[in-house]
Structures are given as structure tokens and as C-alpha cells.
Design a protein around this nucleic acid. Sequence first.
DNA 1: TATTGTTATACTCTATAACTATA
DNA 2: TATAGTTATAGAGTATAACAATA
Lengths: 156, 156
Amino acid sequence: MTTPAVESDLGWALGVVFRGYVRAAEEVLADLPGGPRGYQVLASATTGESCSQQVLAHRLGLDKTVMTYLIDDLERSGLVERRPDPADRRARLLSATETGLARFAETAEALRRVEEHVLAPLAAQERDLLRDLLRKLATRQDDGSNPCAAVDEIQC
Amino acid sequence: MTTPAVESDLGWALGVVFRGYVRAAEEVLADLPGGPRGYQVLASATTGESCSQQVLAHRLGLDKTVMTYLIDDLERSGLVERRPDPADRRARLLSATETGLARFAETAEALRRVEEHVLAPLAAQERDLLRDLLRKLATRQDDGSNPCAAVDEIQC
DNA sequence: TATTGTTATACTCTATAACTATA
DNA sequence: TATAGTTATAGAGTATAACAATA
């Protein structure tokens, strides 16, 4: 079989891997409100410093309205809570509850196994390499699509 | 600034990079029917051997109904054409027209520049490495999400 | 009877804009 | 006047199911 032209495409490979990851993650995160995206919100909320919803939305590549729905669901489940920011009472600071912290710990562990499963076709060394390269790229993109640059500017 | 928990997440990094790529690609592919996905269909159609729509849909991670719409648009623009498969007259073989081949050549070149732009934060060596790792992973995923395994089985 | 591709429908998801409250 | 977040609505995108042609 001749290699189809599309297989030399970075976008194609990225899409296949991304979809494969999301599918695998959705299975593990089926009972977590918001699925993979809910998990990312929860993960962000577990960090010591609280984040405004807008900063979070930008970092996770979400619309601010979607962020509202996601947090609504997580809050209803008692995993996170919104508090008004003393410094700017328009903004809400998001933080994980005790329950949320525990839930995050379990879920993070399960997700680590999912990641290993998704990366299984690669050798151990290659897996680490791919992780590093993707993280490096994700945290250094300098165009508008870069969440982290904005995060650094806006402060979190 | 402390690193948020989510930044150590493979899914987060994949998402940021994937969205960054899609956004950049959409700019270049704005006038191509179907955008990035239309491009992948066109790219697949330029390969010598024609593909059935179903095989194609699976490889590109699309629903078969979406594939119908995508090809409709590309065919209306005169870039690809459907012909009945002599071996199975239920199936249609997709191939690029002369115009489609030319259009693909231009677009592929533009897209190569987009890829380099997206990967710009990495060193040249790292860029090649990331491409190889992603391609390797994309062509070796063995669960149901793997388009290529199926392609090999079904034949293309 | 099963499968390819098409069509029509329904549903989900997302973005747009309008609104409240703060600044 | 501008911004954070919310809400309601409209729109795009997606999947579901029914259908025709062929195996």
C-alpha cells in the first residue's frame, strides 16, 4: 500500500492522536461533569492560587460562556466553588473543594494510565520526548492562540 | 507563577497545539471548500489509488454523512470526482481532477509553511522529532480509533 | 440480509448578543 | 465607558435514522 499524501501531514497526525486521546479520556472521565474539559477545569482549580474564569477559559481554549456551564456543573457536584475576588468584585475566583481535591487526585491517577495507554505504541524514551516537545510547544506558542502567554500577562 | 496542574497534562498540551494548528491552517485554507478537513480529503484523493468514501471517512476521523457533504462541496468546485467502483458498484472511488491536483500542490506548499510556523518555537531538530513521533503514533494506534489499521485491512 | 452512500431530521454544541454588577 | 460573568437565543456542526442501490 502506498502511503497516502495525507499521512505526511502534521495536521492529520495531530488530529488522529488528539481524537484518540479524547476518546480514551472520555471513557475514564465519563462520570466527571464536563468530561475531559471538566477535568482540566478541576485540575486548574486545585492549584493553590485561584484563577478568574476568563483566564481559565483562555488557557483551556474555551469560550467564556462554555466556562460558565462547565463550572456550574462542577459546582453543583460540589467539586469546585466560586468566590468573589476581593480585589475585583466582578471576577470570581475558582477553587477546588475538599471533595474536589480528592476527586482530582483519583482522576489524575486514572488519566495518567490513559496517557500511557495512548502513548503505548512508542518506546518509553519516545513517550517522554513527545510529552516534553508538546508541553514545550504548548507553553511557547506566541501567536494569539497561546493561552499561557496571556496567562502570564494577565496574572493568575 | 506556579505551574498550574493542568500544564503537566498531555491532553492539555495536545489540545493547545491542535487548536493552534487548526486555527493557523484555517487562515490559509479559508477559500478551500471544507477548510482543513476538505484539504485532507483532497490530499487523499490525489493519491494514485482511489479510495472509497467509507475508508476515507474512517482515516480522517469523520462521520460518513459529513464525508458526503465535504465531497459534495469539493466536487462542486471541480476539485475531485466520484466514479462508481467497477468492483463494487455500491461504492464510489474518489479521485482528484486536474484542477484538484494543481490546487493541492499550491495548498500543500502553503500548508507546509503553516506547519513550520506552528512548530517555530522548537529547534529544527525538535521539529523533525515531533513530526516523526506524532506520525509514528498516528499510524500505530491499535485501538478502534486507529484509522490506518482499518485502512490496511479494508484495503485502499 | 448486509453494506455503500445519500438524504432528512433531530440533537448537541458553540458562538452571538443582551443584560447585571462592578470598575 | 469598559470589563467579568451570566443568560437567552440563534446558528453551526454532528449524529441518527430512514432510504435506494447493490452485494
